[in-house]
Amino acid sequence: MANFDMVLKCWGPLDADNNKHGGLGSGHQLLDCFCLQSTQTLFPKFAGIAAGDLSGNAAEAAHGATVLMKLGELLKAEGDHAAILKPLATTHATKHRIALNNFMVRMNDSRGRAGQEALRQVMGVIIVDIDYKELGFAG
């Protein structure tokens, strides 16, 4: 629970406005999960967008806002996240085919080692609880 509490202390600015902080060009890089390469590799709808145009792209920003919203829900559940995780796991295994290693996010260096480690451990718990095998995806 301490790890969830530590991460939630940093989560406030993101949670206050997911739309503002969801895009690559938001200027608030608490999380390093929205990098150009992974966005374009994992989501084909972004593949045809020039690298310089992805930052500030409305569709990419909307996707980032959705990711932040779901991550916030998972964090606030503090481990009691089965009801949130099941539909997320289902769509990411059967529709998007997103491998589990792509769920690992980390706080940027401005949050310090303790914050980074807390988020790593929290995401580790969430990833373990994603049951792709039940869905027929090795992920």
Rank of each mutant, 00 (worst) to 15 (best):
S38I: 08
N57D: 07
K70M: 13
R106C: 05
D53A: 13
V105K: 04
C35K: 09
I84W: 04
Q121H: 06
A47V: 07
G23D: 00
A61E: 02
L119K: 04
N101Y: 13
G52H: 01
A50R: 08
D131Y: 05
L42Y: 01
V128Y: 10
G25D: 13
A65I: 00
G79E: 03
L8K: 05
N3S: 15
Q40H: 04
F43L: 09
F4C: 04
M69W: 12
A47E: 11
V67I: 10
A93H: 01
H21G: 06
T91L: 07
A114M: 05
E78T: 10
I84H: 04
M69S: 15
K95E: 13
N18W: 11
T41R: 15
L88K: 01
I49Q: 01
Q37D: 15
T90D: 08
A62C: 07
K86N: 11
N108L: 06
H92Y: 01
P44V: 12
V128Q: 15
G64S: 06
D129N: 15
A47T: 11
W11L: 00
H81P: 00
D17L: 11
M6K: 14
K95N: 10
W11T: 03
A47G: 09
P44T: 08
D32I: 08
R111V: 14
S26V: 04
N19F: 08
P44I: 11
G79K: 01
G56F: 04
R97K: 14
Q121R: 14
L14A: 10
K45L: 14
A99C: 06
G72W: 10
F103Q: 03
Q116R: 13
A82K: 14
S26D: 04
G72C: 09
R97F: 14
N3K: 08
M104Q: 08
N101L: 10
T41D: 15
P87L: 03
D32Q: 11
L24W: 03
A61W: 00
L8H: 04
L75V: 00
A51V: 12
W11C: 03
A65K: 02
H81L: 06
N101P: 10
Q29T: 13
L24Q: 08
G22N: 05
F46Y: 05
L14F: 11
G48V: 12
H63A: 05
W11M: 04
Q116T: 12
G72V: 05
A83D: 14
N57S: 07
N57I: 01
M6S: 10
L14V: 12
G64V: 02
R106K: 07
T66D: 06
I84Q: 02
Q116I: 15
L74H: 04
N57L: 02
A99S: 13
G124C: 07
A65Q: 00
D53L: 06
S26K: 02
L100W: 10
L119S: 05
I126P: 05
D53W: 04
L36G: 07
I84C: 05
N108H: 07
D53H: 08
